[in-house]
Protein backbone atom coordinates (compact mmCIF):
# COMPACT_ATOMS: atom_id res chain seq x y z
CA UNK A 1 0.00 0.00 0.00
CA UNK A 2 2.91 2.34 0.75
CA UNK A 3 4.56 1.78 -2.64
CA UNK A 4 1.15 1.87 -4.24
CA UNK A 5 0.38 5.26 -2.71
CA UNK A 6 3.68 6.59 -4.04
CA UNK A 7 2.93 5.14 -7.48
CA UNK A 8 -0.54 6.72 -7.49
CA UNK A 9 0.75 10.15 -6.44
CA UNK A 10 3.50 9.84 -9.09
CA UNK A 11 0.96 8.93 -11.80
CA UNK A 12 -1.32 11.83 -10.81
CA UNK A 13 1.67 14.17 -11.01
CA UNK A 14 2.61 12.71 -14.40
CA UNK A 15 -0.87 13.40 -15.80
CA UNK A 16 -0.78 17.03 -14.66
CA UNK A 17 2.78 17.46 -15.90
CA UNK A 18 1.96 15.88 -19.29
CA UNK A 19 -0.57 18.67 -19.77
CA UNK A 20 1.80 21.35 -18.57
CA UNK A 21 4.49 20.13 -20.96
CA UNK A 22 2.22 20.98 -23.88
CA UNK A 23 1.51 24.46 -22.57
CA UNK A 24 4.87 25.49 -21.14
CA UNK A 25 7.31 23.21 -22.94
CA UNK A 26 5.93 22.95 -26.45
CA UNK A 27 3.83 26.14 -26.77
CA UNK A 28 6.01 28.42 -24.66
CA UNK A 29 3.28 29.72 -22.35
CA UNK A 30 4.53 29.74 -18.78
CA UNK A 31 1.99 28.75 -16.16
CA UNK A 32 2.84 29.17 -12.50
CA UNK A 33 -0.70 28.59 -11.35
CA UNK A 34 -1.59 25.23 -12.80
CA UNK A 35 -2.68 23.94 -9.40
CA UNK A 36 -5.69 26.23 -9.86
CA UNK A 37 -6.96 23.92 -12.62
CA UNK A 38 -6.26 20.93 -10.40
CA UNK A 39 -8.37 22.52 -7.68
CA UNK A 40 -11.21 23.28 -10.09
CA UNK A 41 -11.16 19.71 -11.44
CA UNK A 42 -10.95 18.22 -7.96
CA UNK A 43 -13.86 20.21 -6.56
CA UNK A 44 -15.99 19.66 -9.68
CA UNK A 45 -15.38 15.90 -9.56
CA UNK A 46 -15.98 15.52 -5.83
CA UNK A 47 -19.06 17.74 -5.78
CA UNK A 48 -20.53 15.94 -8.81
CA UNK A 49 -19.93 12.61 -7.09
CA UNK A 50 -21.07 13.52 -3.58
CA UNK A 51 -23.94 15.89 -4.21
CA UNK A 52 -25.13 15.15 -7.77
CA UNK A 53 -24.73 11.36 -7.61
CA UNK A 54 -22.57 11.30 -10.74
CA UNK A 55 -20.61 8.00 -10.91
CA UNK A 56 -16.86 8.12 -10.23
CA UNK A 57 -15.40 7.98 -13.75
CA UNK A 58 -17.86 10.46 -15.34
CA UNK A 59 -17.23 12.73 -12.33
CA UNK A 60 -13.49 12.70 -13.01
CA UNK A 61 -14.09 13.52 -16.69
CA UNK A 62 -16.58 16.22 -15.68
CA UNK A 63 -13.88 17.71 -13.43
CA UNK A 64 -11.59 17.89 -16.45
CA UNK A 65 -14.23 19.64 -18.55
CA UNK A 66 -15.03 22.19 -15.85
CA UNK A 67 -11.31 23.00 -15.73
CA UNK A 68 -11.43 23.45 -19.53
CA UNK A 69 -14.36 25.83 -19.18
CA UNK A 70 -12.50 27.90 -16.60
CA UNK A 71 -9.37 27.87 -18.76
CA UNK A 72 -11.32 29.44 -21.63
CA UNK A 73 -12.74 32.12 -19.34
CA UNK A 74 -9.25 32.95 -18.05
CA UNK A 75 -7.28 32.25 -21.19
CA UNK A 76 -9.33 33.72 -24.02
CA UNK A 77 -9.10 37.39 -22.97
CA UNK A 78 -5.46 37.01 -21.96
CA UNK A 79 -4.33 35.20 -25.09
CA UNK A 80 -6.42 37.36 -27.42
CA UNK A 81 -4.50 40.40 -26.28
CA UNK A 82 -1.31 38.63 -27.39
CA UNK A 83 -0.03 38.58 -23.85
CA UNK A 84 3.63 37.61 -23.60
CA UNK A 85 4.63 34.37 -21.91
CA UNK A 86 5.86 35.95 -18.68
CA UNK A 87 2.78 38.17 -18.41
CA UNK A 88 0.55 35.12 -18.79
CA UNK A 89 2.53 33.45 -16.00
CA UNK A 90 1.47 36.27 -13.70
CA UNK A 91 -2.14 35.87 -14.83
CA UNK A 92 -1.93 32.22 -13.79
CA UNK A 93 -0.32 33.17 -10.47
CA UNK A 94 -3.31 35.39 -9.78
CA UNK A 95 -5.68 32.70 -10.99
CA UNK A 96 -4.49 30.07 -8.49
CA UNK A 97 -4.93 32.59 -5.65
CA UNK A 98 -8.40 33.53 -6.89
CA UNK A 99 -9.47 29.88 -7.00
CA UNK A 100 -8.05 29.03 -3.58
CA UNK A 101 -9.35 32.12 -1.81
CA UNK A 102 -12.76 31.87 -3.50
CA UNK A 103 -13.21 28.31 -2.30
CA UNK A 104 -12.14 29.23 1.23
CA UNK A 105 -14.97 31.77 1.26
CA UNK A 106 -17.76 29.55 -0.08
CA UNK A 107 -19.37 27.61 2.75
CA UNK A 108 -22.34 25.93 1.00
CA UNK A 109 -21.30 22.79 -0.90
CA UNK A 110 -17.58 23.76 -1.02
CA UNK A 111 -17.45 23.80 2.78
CA UNK A 112 -14.92 26.66 2.80
CA UNK A 113 -11.65 26.00 4.62
CA UNK A 114 -13.17 23.01 6.44
CA UNK A 115 -12.82 21.09 3.20
CA UNK A 116 -14.72 18.04 2.04
CA UNK A 117 -13.89 14.88 3.96
CA UNK A 118 -15.04 11.27 3.82
CA UNK A 119 -14.48 11.00 0.06
CA UNK A 120 -14.38 7.31 -0.89
CA UNK A 121 -10.99 6.00 -2.02
CA UNK A 122 -11.92 5.15 -5.61
CA UNK A 123 -8.70 6.13 -7.37
CA UNK A 124 -7.20 2.67 -7.40
CA UNK A 125 -3.91 1.77 -9.03
CA UNK A 126 -5.57 0.37 -12.14
CA UNK A 127 -7.80 3.41 -12.68
CA UNK A 128 -4.94 5.89 -12.23
CA UNK A 129 -2.64 3.84 -14.46
CA UNK A 130 -5.26 3.65 -17.17
CA UNK A 131 -5.65 7.42 -17.06
CA UNK A 132 -1.87 7.88 -17.12
CA UNK A 133 -1.37 5.64 -20.15
CA UNK A 134 -4.25 7.23 -22.03
CA UNK A 135 -3.05 10.74 -21.16
CA UNK A 136 0.51 10.11 -22.32
CA UNK A 137 -0.66 8.27 -25.44
CA UNK A 138 -2.95 11.12 -26.38
CA UNK A 139 -0.29 13.73 -25.67
CA UNK A 140 2.30 11.86 -27.73
CA UNK A 141 -0.14 11.68 -30.66
CA UNK A 142 -1.11 15.31 -30.24
CA UNK A 143 2.51 16.45 -30.30
CA UNK A 144 3.07 14.42 -33.48
CA UNK A 145 -0.03 15.89 -35.11
CA UNK A 146 -0.41 19.12 -37.05
CA UNK A 147 -1.73 20.82 -33.91
CA UNK A 148 1.35 19.80 -31.95
CA UNK A 149 3.67 21.07 -34.67
CA UNK A 150 1.75 24.35 -34.71
CA UNK A 151 2.41 24.66 -30.97
CA UNK A 152 6.13 24.05 -31.45
CA UNK A 153 6.20 26.61 -34.26
CA UNK A 154 4.59 29.23 -32.00
CA UNK A 155 7.06 28.47 -29.22
CA UNK A 156 10.03 28.85 -31.55
CA UNK A 157 8.97 31.90 -33.54
CA UNK A 158 5.49 33.22 -32.99
CA UNK A 159 5.53 35.89 -35.72
CA UNK A 160 6.87 33.47 -38.31
CA UNK A 161 4.27 30.91 -37.31
CA UNK A 162 1.53 33.48 -37.81
CA UNK A 163 2.94 34.45 -41.19
CA UNK A 164 2.74 30.90 -42.47
CA UNK A 165 -0.93 30.83 -41.57
CA UNK A 166 -1.07 29.34 -38.10
CA UNK A 167 -3.94 30.71 -36.04
CA UNK A 168 -1.91 31.65 -32.98
CA UNK A 169 -4.82 32.42 -30.66
CA UNK A 170 -6.66 29.20 -31.52
CA UNK A 171 -3.55 27.06 -31.16
CA UNK A 172 -2.58 28.61 -27.83
CA UNK A 173 -6.12 28.28 -26.56
CA UNK A 174 -6.27 24.61 -27.56
CA UNK A 175 -2.99 24.00 -25.74
CA UNK A 176 -4.33 25.77 -22.65
CA UNK A 177 -7.62 23.84 -22.75
CA UNK A 178 -5.91 20.47 -23.09
CA UNK A 179 -3.46 21.21 -20.29
CA UNK A 180 -6.34 22.41 -18.09
CA UNK A 181 -8.24 19.17 -18.82
CA UNK A 182 -5.19 17.14 -17.79
CA UNK A 183 -4.80 19.15 -14.58
CA UNK A 184 -8.52 18.84 -13.82
CA UNK A 185 -8.46 15.08 -14.25
CA UNK A 186 -5.30 14.85 -12.13
CA UNK A 187 -6.95 16.92 -9.39
CA UNK A 188 -10.00 14.64 -9.36
CA UNK A 189 -7.95 11.45 -9.22
CA UNK A 190 -5.80 12.95 -6.47
CA UNK A 191 -8.81 13.81 -4.30
CA UNK A 192 -10.42 10.39 -4.70
CA UNK A 193 -7.20 8.84 -3.41
CA UNK A 194 -6.39 11.34 -0.66
CA UNK A 195 -10.06 11.15 0.55
CA UNK A 196 -9.90 14.74 1.83
CA UNK A 197 -10.19 17.89 -0.23
CA UNK A 198 -9.31 21.36 1.03
CA UNK A 199 -8.25 24.56 -0.74
CA UNK A 200 -4.85 24.44 0.95
CA UNK A 201 -4.05 21.27 -1.04
CA UNK A 202 -3.70 23.41 -4.16
CA UNK A 203 -1.49 26.26 -3.07
CA UNK A 204 1.11 28.05 -5.16
CA UNK A 205 3.63 25.45 -3.91
CA UNK A 206 1.75 22.75 -5.82
CA UNK A 207 2.02 24.79 -9.02
CA UNK A 208 5.73 25.25 -8.34
CA UNK A 209 6.16 21.48 -8.09
CA UNK A 210 4.50 20.95 -11.47
CA UNK A 211 6.54 23.65 -13.16
CA UNK A 212 9.70 22.35 -11.49
CA UNK A 213 9.02 18.92 -12.99
CA UNK A 214 8.74 20.40 -16.49
CA UNK A 215 11.95 22.43 -16.17
CA UNK A 216 13.94 19.76 -14.32
CA UNK A 217 12.90 17.12 -16.81
CA UNK A 218 13.76 19.16 -19.87
CA UNK A 219 11.36 21.70 -21.26
CA UNK A 220 11.55 20.40 -24.82
CA UNK A 221 10.71 16.79 -24.12
CA UNK A 222 7.77 14.78 -22.89
CA UNK A 223 9.58 11.87 -21.29
CA UNK A 224 11.91 14.10 -19.22
CA UNK A 225 9.15 15.95 -17.33
CA UNK A 226 7.24 12.69 -16.85
CA UNK A 227 10.35 11.17 -15.32
CA UNK A 228 10.90 14.28 -13.18
CA UNK A 229 7.24 14.25 -12.04
CA UNK A 230 7.72 10.73 -10.69
CA UNK A 231 11.11 11.59 -9.17
CA UNK A 232 9.68 14.59 -7.33
CA UNK A 233 7.19 12.29 -5.60
CA UNK A 234 9.65 9.51 -4.84
CA UNK A 235 12.69 11.63 -3.87
CA UNK A 236 11.35 13.14 -0.61
CA UNK A 237 10.30 9.63 0.47
CA UNK A 238 13.64 8.12 -0.54
CA UNK A 239 15.43 10.80 1.48
CA UNK A 240 13.51 10.00 4.67
CA UNK A 241 16.59 8.27 6.08
CA UNK A 242 18.14 11.75 6.36
CA UNK A 243 15.46 12.64 8.97
CA UNK A 244 15.36 16.40 9.56
CA UNK A 245 17.88 17.06 6.73
CA UNK A 246 15.56 15.47 4.17
CA UNK A 247 14.15 18.65 2.68
CA UNK A 248 17.54 20.33 2.63
CA UNK A 249 18.84 17.62 0.33
CA UNK A 250 15.60 17.67 -1.67
CA UNK A 251 16.12 21.36 -2.41
CA UNK A 252 19.83 20.84 -3.00
CA UNK A 253 19.00 18.21 -5.64
CA UNK A 254 17.23 20.94 -7.65
CA UNK A 255 20.30 23.16 -7.45
CA UNK A 256 22.64 20.36 -8.51
CA UNK A 257 20.48 19.24 -11.44
CA UNK A 258 20.09 22.74 -12.82
CA UNK A 259 23.77 23.49 -12.27
CA UNK A 260 25.00 20.49 -14.21
CA UNK A 261 22.06 19.95 -16.58
CA UNK A 262 20.64 23.42 -17.22
CA UNK A 263 18.65 22.03 -20.15
CA UNK A 264 16.95 19.56 -17.77
CA UNK A 265 17.41 15.86 -17.13
CA UNK A 266 16.61 14.84 -20.70
CA UNK A 267 17.63 18.04 -22.47
CA UNK A 268 16.32 17.86 -26.01
CA UNK A 269 16.21 14.07 -26.21
CA UNK A 270 13.45 11.65 -25.44
CA UNK A 271 14.20 8.46 -23.55
CA UNK A 272 15.54 6.03 -26.10
CA UNK A 273 15.69 2.27 -26.05
CA UNK A 274 18.10 1.93 -28.97
CA UNK A 275 20.76 0.66 -26.58
CA UNK A 276 18.54 -2.33 -25.74
CA UNK A 277 18.36 -3.27 -29.42
CA UNK A 278 22.12 -2.80 -29.82
CA UNK A 279 22.82 -4.87 -26.73
CA UNK A 280 20.47 -7.59 -27.97
CA UNK A 281 22.22 -7.55 -31.35
CA UNK A 282 25.63 -7.88 -29.71
CA UNK A 283 24.47 -10.73 -27.50
CA UNK A 284 23.00 -12.57 -30.49
CA UNK A 285 26.14 -11.92 -32.53
CA UNK A 286 28.33 -13.36 -29.79
CA UNK A 287 26.02 -16.34 -29.43
CA UNK A 288 26.40 -17.08 -33.19
CA UNK A 289 30.18 -16.84 -32.94
Amino acid sequence: MYLQSLAIFACVNMIAVAGLVLLTGYTGIFSIGHAGFMAVGAYAAVISFKYLAVPFLPAIIAGGFVAVLISVIIGYPALRSMMAGDAFAIVMLGFVSVVRISITNIKPVFNASFGISDIPRLSTMSVVLAFTILSVWFMRNFLKSHYGKNCIAIQQQETAAEMVGINVLKTKLIALMISAFYAGVAGGLFSFFATYLAPTNFSEAKSDDLLAAVVLGGINTLSGPLLAAAILVVLPEFLRFLAIWRLVFYGAAFVVIMQFKPEGLMGYREISFKWVGRLYGKVRGKARD
Binding site: A7, L129, I133, V136, W137, K144, L222, S223, F273
Partner: peptide, 21 residues
Protein backbone atom coordinates in the same frame (compact mmCIF):
# COMPACT_ATOMS: atom_id res chain seq x y z
CA UNK B 1 11.38 8.20 -31.15
CA UNK B 2 7.91 9.03 -29.94
CA UNK B 3 6.72 5.45 -30.36
CA UNK B 4 9.59 4.46 -28.09
CA UNK B 5 8.42 6.99 -25.57
CA UNK B 6 4.96 5.48 -25.58
CA UNK B 7 6.50 2.03 -25.28
CA UNK B 8 8.48 3.28 -22.28
CA UNK B 9 5.42 4.64 -20.50
CA UNK B 10 3.44 1.48 -21.26
CA UNK B 11 6.34 -0.65 -20.02
CA UNK B 12 6.65 1.45 -16.85
CA UNK B 13 2.95 1.16 -16.20
CA UNK B 14 2.91 -2.59 -16.84
CA UNK B 15 5.80 -3.07 -14.44
CA UNK B 16 3.98 -0.94 -11.87
CA UNK B 17 0.86 -3.03 -12.33
CA UNK B 18 2.76 -6.24 -11.78
CA UNK B 19 4.62 -4.84 -8.79
CA UNK B 20 1.76 -3.17 -7.02
CA UNK B 21 -1.20 -5.35 -7.96
Amino acid sequence: MRSRLFALVTAMCTITLVLFG
